[in-house]
């Protein structure tokens, strides 16, 4: 999408991990879906964490729509992120968990549709501890995509899903992101995700 403006710019970013500097340089267009790939330990999750505001870089800048993101604390950035784990409050019901993270009342209609599409509607009154890993992941994906943030970061979102569910989830994420015009970065090890979901892939390391 060469004609759309550059929404996310990561310029000469340096993050020190385990006494080793990691360098990042990337430009993402608005509405683009980009898969981030690379060996384990190359710093994929670290990049997402830095964009979301949980890791402080040593040098460089991150810009969203021309605004310096590093100046903002995590809870003021335009970001919805899916962590590898700890996405749900264990002591709250699935339903309560789903309704968190919305500015004002949660979009019940959209949430219900998401739950139906990803087959978790029956689980709303359970607690996360009663769910399987794949079920937890789907619940968290639904919330992350539907939150009113323009930039979505997904860290290995489909890792625990079986092939059939995985297909459903990939389709739903793709459709939802494009329908709502979100910019989406996902870390993945699966070539399928890249071909089925992403506009392009970035190789780190």
């Amino acid at each position: 999408m060469p004609d759309t403006p550059c929404a996310l710019e990561v310029n000469q970013l340096v993050i020190t991990r385990d006494n080793r500097p990691l360098h990042y340089q990337l430009h993402i267009h608005a509405g683009e879906i980009v898969a981030i790939q690379g060996r384990s330990g190359v710093g994929k999750s670290t990049l997402l964490s830095a964009i979301a505001g949980f890791v402080t870089p040593q040098q460089g800048e991150i810009l969203w729509q021309g605004q310096l993101l590093l100046a903002l604390p995590a809870n003021q950035r335009p970001v919805a992120m899916l962590f590898q784990d700890h996405n749900l409050f264990e002591h709250l019901s699935v339903k309560t968990n789903l309704q968190l993270g919305f500015d004002g009342p949660a979009p019940m209609q959209a949430l219900a549709e998401g739950c139906a599409a990803l087959q978790v509607s029956e689980l709303l009154h359970k607690t996360p501890a009663q769910l399987s890993g794949g079920q937890r992941q789907r619940v968290a994906i639904i919330r992350t995509l539907l939150r009113p943030e323009p930039l979505i970061l997904l860290d290995e979102p489909f890792a625990e899903l079986d092939p059939a569910t995985r297909q459903q989830a990939v389709n739903w994420v793709g459709n939802t992101a494009r329908a709502t015009g979100k910019t989406l970065l996902l870390v993945t090890h699966q070539q399928d995700d890249v071909t089925q979901l992403a506009d392009r892939a970035l190789m780190l390391g």
Binding site: S49, V55, P73
Partner: peptide, 22 residues
């Protein structure tokens, strides 16, 4: 999620705005 210790000494090159945010 990663919350490894961050070396605070090396923040001198960061933009002022970033410090303000912190």
């Amino acid at each position: 999620m990663s919350t490894n210790p961050i070396n605070i000494d090396n923040t001198s090159t960061l933009a002022n705005a970033q410090l303000a945010g912190r």
